[in-house]
Design a protein around this nucleic acid. Sequence first.
DNA 1: TTGAAAGCGCTAACAG
DNA 2: CTGTTAGCGCTTTCAA
Lengths: 352, 352
Amino acid sequence: MTSSRATLIQVAERAGVSLASTSRALHGSGASEAMVERVRAAADELGYSPDVSGRSLKLGRTFQIAFAVADIGNPVHAKMMAALHEVLAPHGYRVVVMTTGDTPESATELVRSLGSGFVDGMVVSPPHTDEELVRAVRRAPVPVVAIGRSLGAHGVDSVSTDSAAGVGQAVRHLVETGRRRIGFLNGPPDTSPGAERKRGFDDAVSAPGFAAERVDVALAEDFTVVAGVAAAHRLLAGAPRGGARLDAVVAANDLLAIGTILAARELGLSVPEDVAVTGMDDTEMGRIFQPSLTSVSLGSAELGRAAARIMLRLVEGKADEPRETPVGPRLVVRESTGVPPMLAGAVRKGAL
Amino acid sequence: MTSSRATLIQVAERAGVSLASTSRALHGSGASEAMVERVRAAADELGYSPDVSGRSLKLGRTFQIAFAVADIGNPVHAKMMAALHEVLAPHGYRVVVMTTGDTPESATELVRSLGSGFVDGMVVSPPHTDEELVRAVRRAPVPVVAIGRSLGAHGVDSVSTDSAAGVGQAVRHLVETGRRRIGFLNGPPDTSPGAERKRGFDDAVSAPGFAAERVDVALAEDFTVVAGVAAAHRLLAGAPRGGARLDAVVAANDLLAIGTILAARELGLSVPEDVAVTGMDDTEMGRIFQPSLTSVSLGSAELGRAAARIMLRLVEGKADEPRETPVGPRLVVRESTGVPPMLAGAVRKGAL
DNA sequence: TTGAAAGCGCTAACAG
DNA sequence: CTGTTAGCGCTTTCAA
């Protein structure tokens, strides 16, 4: 361990040629056949591999891209990161993980840290935004690509799914399959996903030709199963204005949807017979859960890939002008909205 | 964007003092109150932040640690990485993600790439090992910590759970709760987890006082739900030597366990009444699945944390001698082995 | 095509 | 306590 590494100078000495020629022979152009061979041989004998720090200092590039999210343990974020890595690694870029925490302040600090030049760019997906953060991104010395709408709205390069449209897809699917009393279980509406999903629901139910009889809304304290159970209880238990019970719930993500199903069970309701439930995010958990979850895929992997592609263009200097790149949401219909059970078949066909 | 960054020299000029004093005032010791204040002010005005490449080159340290696994999209690996990051970040270390792919060759290549000095150490969890990889690790110019037994056995610093012991816990739990005809659903036994789980099962059933009537084994082609369904069919459908059907299945991980439960349903068997099922890894999916899965926690987060702590000591030069650090497995009993349903209560208490 | 030399931004040894 | 200076490893002008 910790054997000392060979430097370019040593390779040059060994090959009996100049430093410059050595560098050229290994990397750049303009070296004779003989030179290349000679230097290669020397390099191999010494087990030489070029030092990244020296190279970075000279070139002003690190070949590293940062990925910053609130919580990298979150499967959605992990998936994004995997996609990012998948696209960037073949181009010689390493991915550095960072966590922003929950507040825009800490995200801002992270963006500011770009000043120390440890990466050539940053892909960031902040849970909240404020003016400071936007300003920091604008001033960043390297390209920043945002995932999510919050920053994109401020002229930052960004990719995002139209999750509002996704909620609309879910609502229309429910109405088309005969549901008439629809509940909406959202998370905190002061978060960016919460706000958008709210907008999506409001738009959907106020669209011309919307055919439901009744609409209720409940807010969970958080986008988690536990919070979902509690809030879904309120939604399903009460029959507010004396009407009949809800026959469908649109949940703002898969975790809340699972919470809703658990709550329904506790209340003796069966899913999807008594009440249909839709989720959002199309998580593996939702696919495996029973009944499997009808869910709107926001394509976190696709978001990661798209962000990576934009970043590649940016760091290679092909500066398009900043713009929002939409990634389309997609409704994946499964058992929780009343499609006949076909699990066995689906499993065999690899749909799981 | 891409505004040019201030250098230490510029700060020095602005403050009207020498370069060395500027450096000292900002970082090191030995600078007067007045000097510090003066330099700080200049630095602030210029929005200075120290360049990482220059610093790395001089110091010979990057304050980066690599984390290399086969597939960072795998939730287990994602969890490890989150834990690693959680421990390392507060100490000023960044985490760089790398993927080894499936073969020991590509892992070896990754370890060799440490020669280019882009990180101060690497935490690696290779799916397979060979002699070349071990040699590469030994020769690595920076500390390497392995997660998993395969490398640890060769004198490399490592953390691992005794998953063989974990299988034993599952088997004993089943016998203690009255099961007598036990199947073992393993993944490919030529993988390191497969081999260990096999050993664990063999040990458990050949232990003195082992009280089962019958033992069957099936191999899934992969550690996935789909492969699990197929293999579990074979295990549960046939009643080989004419005996009664199995009343318990120990699956080598949670995905296979879920596959087993799905297969059991297709065969009209109910879990846990007709057949008890245990998993391994204690995944979120297993907790949420219905019936919730009794599972052996191998503590991927704890492994990540432990690996990070060892790495910190190593990069700070406190070289303990290489050793294996065990992280204990833990059986988490849930519904799939016949514990009365208490989901509602558990959910409310936040056990989900 | 090859070599000599400058310098990326920083820290630390040395001298004052 | 402060300043001068060398040099980490590399790439790249500029001359030959």
